[in-house]
């Protein structure tokens, strides 16, 4: 039920997965609904479970930082992210279980459940929010999906999906546009608009390459348009799909112990 865009927010979850049954472009039928296509895209990018490493670079007006992290995921419900570098932040971990997020801070040895009031707060100082991590799985429920454009663009056959929120869906966006390449089902970008049709942020995908036997976009860049010059970059360095982990792995104890 998740889509790449949903996880737009959670750059992390996005690549945290491959699918159980590999789908090739050839299998996509023309009469498929946009919803089914997005579901397929999603399943390519998400497996039953995954394990990987990534670096995140955050550039803001006042500072820049770079974090290295290790990640695990299981289905849409569970994920665990642990910072491995720089040393100052090492051990800091985030656990997502269902709709809840916990943060573990090793320096004070405390686990904090992120309260509702912080859900839209930034995750690790990046341009992704805690809410992006949780809400991801609601995207298909919250939006009506249509194909806005289908055909050749920049020398590739693409679909451009237009997602408009269902009448009473609890989402802030007025519209999301999402482009997917037809031949390999790779997402290229997602654009988030407010209700006046003004572009608020863009998620750009890139550096498509094989990882763990799948073609995935190894790079994601989130650009908030109201803050010129700022961006958050997530680059995956290693990914494995369908690894041996179960729900017990995503416990608060694992959050504190380092997941090993």
């Amino acid at each position: 039920m998740t889509t790449g865009i949903g996880r737009a927010g959670c750059g992390l979850c996005l690549v945290l997965g491959a699918l159980s049954g590999l789908v090739t472009s050839g299998e996509i039928e023309a009469q498929e609904t946009p919803r089914e296509i997005i579901d397929r895209v999603d399943r390519i990018l998400r497996g039953e479970s995954s394990h990987g490493f990534a670096t995140m670079e955050v550039v803001t007006e006042h500072w820049e930082r770079s974090l290295t992290m290790e990640m695990w995921s299981l289905g849409t419900e569970y994920s665990l992210v642990r910072i491995t570098a720089p040393r100052k932040e090492a051990g800091t971990a985030t656990l997502k279980s269902g709709d809840d997020i916990w943060n573990y801070l090793p320096r004070v040895d405390r686990t904090i459940k992120i309260p509702a009031s912080l859900m839209m707060g930034s995750w690790m100082g990046s341009h992704f929010t805690n809410d992006d991590l949780v809400k991801e799985s609601r995207l298909v429920e919250d939006y009506d999906i249509e194909i806005g454009f289908e055909g050749l663009r920049e020398e590739a056959e693409i679909w451009e999906f237009v997602l408009t929120p269902a009448p009473e869906a609890a989402v802030v966006w007025g519209r999301i546009d999402f482009e997917v390449r037809k031949d390999d089902l790779m997402p290229t970008w997602a654009r988030y608009y407010d209700e006046d049709g003004e572009l608020v942020r863009t998620l750009q995908y890139g550096e498509y390459q094989e990882m763990g036997g799948r073609l995935v976009p190894a790079l994601m860049v989130m650009v908030p348009h109201d803050k010129p010059g700022e961006k958050t970059l997530v680059r995956y360095s290693d990914l494995d799909f369908d690894v041996e982990i179960d729900e017990g792995f995503f416990s608060l104890r694992a959050l504190q112990s380092g997941g090993d």
């Binding site: 912080l118 839209m120 707060g121 929010t129 966006w173 007025g174 407010d194 209700e195």
Partner: peptide, 8 residues
């Protein structure tokens, strides 16, 4: 939390 596209 109150949120809009511009923040929260």
């Amino acid at each position: 939390l109150a949120s809009s596209p511009m923040g929260a």
